[in-house]
């Protein structure tokens, strides 16, 4: 899951980037409102973490600009202000959730997952597909109850496929979702991950749509 982080405090941003990375997210970080505002259109983000006290363009203005432009990415606001009017203002401006500093990393991750799940119309915490069950919180997948050994990238690809059930994912989109802007990737990285997943889950689990990309196989 690719997350856009707009936060002016270096230490918080550094921690969120590293911590959320550990928890299976790919995080792109922008320091101020102006570059953050533009960044949303730059990559297929699944959710946004937005700090309100931003220099230059305030977080609330960034959010309002996105919503005016019709962007519907779920936005989680981070702020030091916890007064009710502040929270209401944020939610009314189009935020989907609100966290007051200091926050727990696990809570940020949980809320992001919930936001992304809701966006894809799923309410349960587990993704199910045939005999496969995927737990996005524990980062664990089981096949017919048997735990699967998957790498972080494989888990991310699996999550992406499950979330986008019924859609064909172009190869380039998968690349963008799995890798942040500052991460190196080999030209055939996606193929390698798909190959490994097929080996572990069965060849019919991922279907190749020739010339476009990949999609989830039929449920057995």
């Amino acid at each position: 899951m690719r997350i856009l982080l707009i936060e002016d405090d270096d230490m918080i941003a550094d921690g969120l980037k590293a911590g959320l990375g550990q928890l299976g997210f790919v995080v792109d970080w922008f320091r101020d409102g102006k570059s953050g505002l533009a960044a949303l259109s730059g990559a297929p983000f699944d959710a946004v973490i937005l700090d309100l006290g931003l220099p230059g363009l305030d977080g609330m203005e960034v959010l309002a600009a996105w919503r005016r432009a019709g962007r519907s990415e779920p936005v989680l606001i981070l702020t030091a202000r916890d007064a009710l009017p502040e929270r209401l203002k944020g939610l009314d401006a189009g935020a989907d959730d609100y966290l007051v500093k200091p926050f727990a990393l696990a809570e940020v991750a949980a809320r992001l997952r919930a936001l992304i799940r809701r966006r894809h119309g799923q309410s349960g915490p587990l993704y199910l597909h045939g005999a496969l069950s995927f737990d996005p919180v524990a980062r664990r997948a089981t096949l017919s109850g048997e735990p699967l050994e998957l790498t972080a990238r494989e888990l991310a690809l699996l999550e992406l496929l499950l979330v986008s059930k019924g859609r064909v994912l172009p190869r380039s989109l998968i690349e963008e979702k799995l890798y942040g802007w500052d991460q190196e990737l080999d030209s055939n990285a996606v193929e390698v991950h798909v190959h490994h997943l097929r080996k572990k889950l069965g060849s019919g689990f991922i279907k190749t749509v020739r010339g476009i990309g990949y999609t989830l196989g039929d449920e057995e």
Binding site: M11, G19, A80, K101, F103
Partner: peptide, 8 residues
């Protein structure tokens, strides 16, 4: 803010 940074 510094507390949030410390915690994270």
């Amino acid at each position: 803010t510094p507390l949030a940074a410390l915690r994270v």
